[in-house]
Design a protein around this nucleic acid. Sequence first.
DNA 1: GAAAGACGCAACCAAATGGTTGCGCTTCGT
DNA 2: ACGAAGCGCAACCATTTGGTTGCGTCTTTC
Lengths: 117, 117
Amino acid sequence: MTPRAGTPPVAADRDVAAGAVFAALADPTRRQVVRALADRPTVTASALAGELPMSRQAVAKHLAVLADAGLVAAAREGRETRFRLTPEPLHDAVRWIAGAGARWDDRLARLERELGG
Amino acid sequence: MTPRAGTPPVAADRDVAAGAVFAALADPTRRQVVRALADRPTVTASALAGELPMSRQAVAKHLAVLADAGLVAAAREGRETRFRLTPEPLHDAVRWIAGAGARWDDRLARLERELGG
DNA sequence: GAAAGACGCAACCAAATGGTTGCGCTTCGT
DNA sequence: ACGAAGCGCAACCATTTGGTTGCGTCTTTC
């Protein structure tokens, strides 16, 4: 997947990770997908396309973007691939936000302290 | 600025607010601008353009996007306009993230509890 | 009062983005 | 064995986006 596997994460890494998360969540459809994925444990592209006003391929593209951001993992099962939420990268995003606003907002500063550097 | 001023914020409102924040922070240059703005109290577009490898107008566009997301406020002072960070919308973004990942991640669930619905 | 500094607006351009359709391959059910 | 379900890949299209340049306006300064 992503290069530099196993290498300790430095500031720049977390910025790009957070950036990928922000970019992934910038699209309303993608947020809807994440929301849908927050209810059921897994979902297929076709099932989602049934609920959303767009084609299966469009949904698949969105899921690919989410997967690239590390927010979603795909697992092939027979003839269908089930996607599940993998929310770890969300921490990078929250960290970034807390770090950015810490000097300007008490609550974010507290959040940053709790999350650690 | 944004319509519906004074009306109590509902779920959809916070989603669009969070969406604007995500979109604003999706661009690396914009994150750099926010970072720069996290150090000094205020900054001008020209000053930022001096440090970044791009024109003043490009920086001005980025600042406009950040302002639309409510992350930055502009104040004209004489012949220059100073921009300052207004981090309130960051809370909407954190809230959204916490709400999305709460069922999947204990730390995010705790965060959601602390932030309140 | 005129030059210089900082800004805003508009036009323009290349690349990325969100969507479509069409097609071919694997897998399941009968 | 064969049709249908489900998926992936690729081509294509319109719109958005991140950047540029050029120009006009308003302040400040000399």
